[in-house]
Design a protein around this nucleic acid. Structure first.
Ligand SMILES: [Zn+2]
Ligand SMILES: [Zn+2]
Length: 772
DNA sequence: AGCACGCCGACT
DNA sequence: GTCGGCGTGCTC
C-alpha cells in the first residue's frame, strides 16, 4: 500500500491521509471517501514508509489525472501560502483554482464501434441504443441502463463501451485577428497594424472603420487568423509598439542577463507611456526562447486590456487570459489549458499568481502599487507578495512595474533587495505637465477662480478638461434642519450619502439605502440640508456654469458596465464631451488624448483616513491623475486644489518628486514603527452583540500580550465600529520579525475556541494594507 | 462544508 | 414521555 496526504476543499486543519494500492503522483486529483461522502481532492505528497499513520486509513477510490495537474513547485508554494496566512489548506486551494477543479468530471460513455456492431447484431439489449451518443455515466446508472459502475468498467475493458474524452478547455474562446503580411503598408492603419504585429479585427474595425479593414484583407496584404478572444474592455489609444530606445535597451539587457540565474527582482519605475510594456514583452520573448514560462499579473480594475492585447498579439495562442471578468466556464477552460502545458504565457489578475504553469521563468507584476492585488475579503492574500514568493520557489526573475511604486517596494529596492531600474522617457512629443497648486480659502469652496479660468481657456482652445473628485454621490452628509443631527446608516453609524438622481440616501460602506428624504429618526423633522460635494453635484454645478458644453460623469454610479465606459470614452474622443467629472476611475490608465487640463478638486481628500497608508495612496492617486493631462500633443496643465498645500503628499505630487515623497514617508513610518519597518497582523472580531464582541477582543488581546513575543495594540473599536449590522473590535499585532507574529498567531488559533465564544467571528489579516 | 451526536421546550 | 431546535465536533 502507498499512502498520500490529500488536500480536500474543506476547512480542515490539515490534509487527510489516504491509501492506494498503486503509486500515484503528487499534483494529481483523486476521488476519496470522507464519512459517507465522495469528494475530489488533490494529492499533496506521499508519506514515507515508517511514518505513523492514523488508526483507520481509507482507500483512494479514483484517479482523475493520470498526469499531475500541479507541479511540486506549485504545491510547495501553496503550502507556504496556507502556512503564512494560517488558513486551512483546502481554503487556500479553493481560492487558488477555478471552481471546476474540485468537481468530478462529468464523465461520459458511449458505445464503441464494436459495441454498435454488437447492438445491431442483437448481442446487447435494445435499450442500449441511447448509448450510440455520449451519455453521462451518472445518468446511465440512474436510469438503470447499466446497473453498476463496475459493470461499466468491465464493458469499457472489453471494448464495447468507450469513455468520451473530457472536452474541458479544448475549445477556448477565439476571435478573428489580423496580421500584416504585405511588403509595404499602404495606409496609416496598415502601418499601425504592422507595428502591433497582430490585432483583433473587432478592434481594428472600431479604429479604422469596417470598410477600410475589409479593403486590407481583400488586397491580400493582411492575413486572417483565429486567436484567443480578448476581454471586451476598450482598447483605445495609442497602442503602437516602437523599437526600444537606448534607455529601454539597457533596461531590457540588464533584466535579460539575470534570466535563468535564480531568483531576482527588478523594480521598474517609469511613467505611463515610458515603455514598461515593451520591456515586459522583450524580456518575455527571451524567457520563452529559453523554454521557460511567463506569468503576467495585471490589476483587477485595469479596464483597458492593454497588456493582454500586446501579449496575445506577440505570442498568439500560447497566451491564456485569467480574469474575473471572464465567465467561470471560460476561466476553467483557460486554466486547464495552462495545466496541460498548452499555454505558456499567462496574463491575469490576482488569482493568476496560482496559475499552473510548469516552469515560470519570469513573473511580471504590472502596476505593482495597485491595491487590488490585495484580496480585501475572506482570505486576504497579497498577490504581489505571493508572486515574489512563487518566484523564489522556482528561481524566476520578477519585474515589478509602476509609475508610482509602493513604499514597500521602493524601500526594498533602496535597500538593495531589488534592483531599481528607471525609464525616464516620456511618450513621443510629450512634455511634462505644468502643475499648479491653488489653495482653497473659504469653507465650502470647491471651484476656485483659477480653476474656472483655466477651464475656460482650455475649452476655448477646443481641448478637454478632466475634473477629479474621489467621492461619489451628490453630498456626503445630510443634516436635519430641526435638530441638527446627521442622518446615519442604521448598520454602520456612518453618515449617509445623498444620491440625487436615484433619490436615495446610501451608505457607502455596507450598501444600505433608503428613499430621500425620510423623517429624522431623532426629532421627526422633515427639512434637511445637504453639506459637502460629490461627483454628482460637481457635474450639476459644471453644467450650470458651462451651458452648452458637453459634460459627462465617470464613476461607479454613472458607468455601470464596460459598454457604457466604452461609449463614454468614444464620445470623448469624438469631441462630443468637453468636460469629464470623475472619481478614481479616471486615474486608471484610460488614454484620454484630448485632455490638456486636469483639475483635482480636493487633493487631500482621503488623507484624513485613520490608515498608515493614507498619504501613500493620496500621493499615488495624485500623480496618476496628473498623468492624465497633456497626453496628446498639447502640453498638459494640472491644477491641484487643496487646503493643505504644505502636506508632503500634496507638495511632492505637485513637483512630481517621488524621491522626496518616499524619503518623508519612510521617515514617518520609521518613527511610528509601521511597515516596511515592522510587520503587522490585524485581528478583527465581529459579532451581533457589542459587549460579547468587546469581551472576546479583550480576552484575546490579553492572551496575546501574555505571550510576550509581539507588540499588541488594542483592543480598540474598529475604525468602522459597526459594519453591516455587526459590531467590530480589532487587535493589531506588530513585530519586526515575521516569525514572532507567526508563533503568536499560531498560539492564538490553538486557544481560539477557549478565548472566543461561538457567534463571534475572527478575521485574520496578515500584512493589512488598510486598517479600516 | 456536511453530518452526526447531544441536551432542553411544546406536542401526541 | 417523545419530536425536534441547532450548538459543538469530527472527518484520514
Ligand atoms: Zn432632526
Ligand atoms: Zn452602512
Amino acid at each position: 500500500m502507498f499512502f498520500y496526504r490529500v488536500i480536500l476543499p474543506l476547512p480542515l486543519r490539515e490534509p487527510l491521509i489516504y491509501a492506494s494500492s498503486r503509486p500515484l503522483s503528487p499534483g494529481s486529483r483523486v476521488v476519496v471517501p470522507l464519512k459517507r461522502r465522495r469528494l475530489v481532492g488533490v494529492i499533496l505528497e506521499s508519506i514515507p514508509p515508517g511514518t505513523e499513520l492514523p488508526e483507520e486509513v481509507r482507500e483512494i477510490q479514483d484517479l482523475l489525472d493520470p498526469e499531475p495537474l500541479l507541479s511540486t513547485e506549485l504545491l510547495h508554494f501553496l503550502r507556504w501560502c496556507w502556512e503564512y496566512y494560517l488558513c486551512p489548506p483546502g481554503e487556500m486551494v479553493r481560492q487558488a483554482f477555478p471552481p471546476g477543479f474540485f468537481r468530478e468530471l462529468k464523465r461520459r460513455i458511449r458505445l464503441s464501434a464494436a459495441g454498435r456492431r454488437a447492438l445491431r447484431e442483437g448481442r446487447l439489449p435494445q435499450e442500449w441504443s441511447v448509448l450510440t451518443r455520449p451519455r453521462l455515466i451518472r445518468r446511465v446508472l440512474a436510469e438503470g441502463i447499466i446497473p453498476s459502475a463496475g459493470e461499466i468498467e468491465r464493458l469499457v475493458r472489453e471494448g464495447l463501451l468507450e469513455e468520451v474524452e473530457d472536452q474541458r478547455g479544448l475549445h477556448p474562446p477565439v476571435e478573428e485577428w489580423l496580421e500584416f503580411v504585405g511588403e509595404e503598408p499602404l495606409s496609416e492603419g496598415e502601418e499601425i497594424l504592422r507595428r502591433r504585429k497582430r490585432w483583433p479585427r473587432r478592434l481594428l474595425e472600431e479604429e479604422f472603420g469596417r470598410e477600410e479593414v475589409r479593403g486590407w484583407i481583400s488586397s491580400g496584404r493582411v492575413r486572417r487568423l483565429r486567436l484567443p478572444r480578448l476581454r471586451k474592455g476598450p482598447v483605445l489609444g495609442d497602442l503602437s509598439l516602437p523599437e526600444p530606445d537606448p534607455e529601454q535597451k539597457r533596461v531590457i539587457q540588464e533584466i535579460r542577463q539575470a534570466l535563468g540565474q535564480g531568483f531576482r527582482t527588478f523594480l521598474l519605475h517609469g511613467i505611463t507611456g515610458s515603455g514598461k510594456t515593451l520591456v515586459y514583452l522583450k524580456v518575455a520573448e527571451e524567457v520563452l526562447a529559453q523554454g521557460k514560462d511567463v506569468l503576467v499579473l495585471v490589476p483587477e480594475i485595469a479596464l483597458t486590456p492593454y497588456v493582454e492585447a500586446h501579449l496575445v498579439a506577440r505570442f498568439g495562442s500560447q497566451v491564456a487570459v485569467l480574469h474575473s471578468a471572464l465567465s467561470a466556464g471560460w476561466r476553467a477552460a483557460e486554466w486547464f489549458r495552462i495545466a496541460r502545458g498548452e499555454a505558456r504565457v499567462v496574463v491575469g489578475a490576482r488569482s493568476a499568481v496560482f496559475a499552473p504553469l510548469r516552469h515560470p521563468g519570469l513573473i511580471v507584476v504590472d502596476e505593482e502599487h495597485e491595491g487590488t492585488y490585495k484580496q480585501s475579503e475572506g482570505l486576504r492574500y497579497q498577490a504581489r507578495d505571493l508572486a515574489l514568493m512563487r518566484a523564489k520557489f522556482c528561481g524566476a526573475t520578477v519585474i515589478l512595474g509602476s509609475a508610482t511604486p509602493s513604499v514597500k517596494s521602493y524601500f526594498l529596492a533602496r535597500k538593495g533587495r531589488y534592483t531599481l531600474l528607471r525609464l525616464h522617457r516620456r511618450p513621443a512629443g510629450r512634455r511634462p505637465p505644468e502643475i499648479q497648486l491653488v489653495v482653497l480659502q473659504r469653507p465650502g469652496e470647491y471651484l476656485t477662480p483659477e480653476l474656472i479660468a483655466a477651464m475656460e481657456e482650455t475649452l476655448n482652445r477646443g481641448e478637454q478638461v478632466l475634473l477629479f473628485l474621489n467621492r461619489r454621490g451628490y453630498a456626503p452628509v445630510v443634516f436635519c434642519r430641526e435638530c441638527g443631527e446627521a442622518l446615519e446608516c442604521p448598520n454602520c453609524s456612518l453618515t449617509l450619502t445623498y444620491h440625487r438622481r436615484s433619490g436615495i440616501l446610501l451608505c457607502h460602506h455596507c450598501g444600505f439605502s433608503q428613499p430621500a428624504f425620510p423623517v429624522c429618526p431623532r426629532c421627526e423633522g422633515t427639512r434637511f440640508r445637504t453639506v459637502g460635494i460629490g461627483t454628482e453635484r460637481l457635474e450639476e454645478e459644471i453644467r450650470q456654469r458651462f451651458p452648452g458644453v458637453g459634460v459627462a460623469r465617470l464613476d461607479r454610479d454613472s458607468v455601470t458596465s464596460e459598454k457604457r465606459l466604452y461609449d463614454l470614452l468614444l464620445r470623448l474622443r469624438r469631441g462630443e464631451i468637453q468636460i469629464v467629472v470623475g472619481t478614481q476611475m479616471v486615474a486608471q490608465g484610460h488614454d484620454l488624448p484630448g485632455v490638456s487640463l486636469v483639475g483635482v478638486i480636493w487633493a487631500e481628500g482621503g488623507l484624513h483616513l485613520p490608515d498608515f497608508r493614507a498619504a501613500e495612496r493620496t500621493f499615488q492617486l495624485l500623480v496618476q491623475v496628473a498623468g492624465r493631462a497633456g497626453r496628446g500633443t498639447s502640453p498638459g496643465r494640472v491644477i491641484l486644489q487643496t487646503r493643505l498645500p504644505h502636506h508632503y503628499a500634496v507638495a511632492c505630487a505637485l513637483k512630481e518628486d517621488y524621491e522626496g515623497f518616499y524619503r518623508e514617508e519612510l521617515e514617518r513610518r520609521k518613527q511610528l514603527g509601521f511597515p516596511p519597518f515592522s510587520r503587522l497582523a490585524l485581528l478583527i472580531f465581529s459579532g451581533i452583540r457589542p459587549e460579547k464582541t468587546e469581551e472576546a477582543a479583550r480576552r484575546s488581546a490579553s492572551f496575546l500580550a501574555s505571550l510576550g513575543r509581539v507588540e499588541v495594540l488594542g483592543p480598540a473599536p474598529a475604525p468602522l465600529p459597526r459594519l453591516a449590522g455587526r459590531y467590530r473590535w480589532q487587535v493589531l499585532l506588530r513585530s519586526p520579525r515575521s516569525s514572532a507574529l507567526d508563533q503568536t498567531l499560531r498560539a492564538f488559533l490553538r486557544e481560539k475556541s477557549r478565548l472566543v465564544p461561538s457567534g463571534i467571528s475572527v478575521t485574520l489579516d496578515r500584512d493589512p494594507e488598510e486598517l479600516l
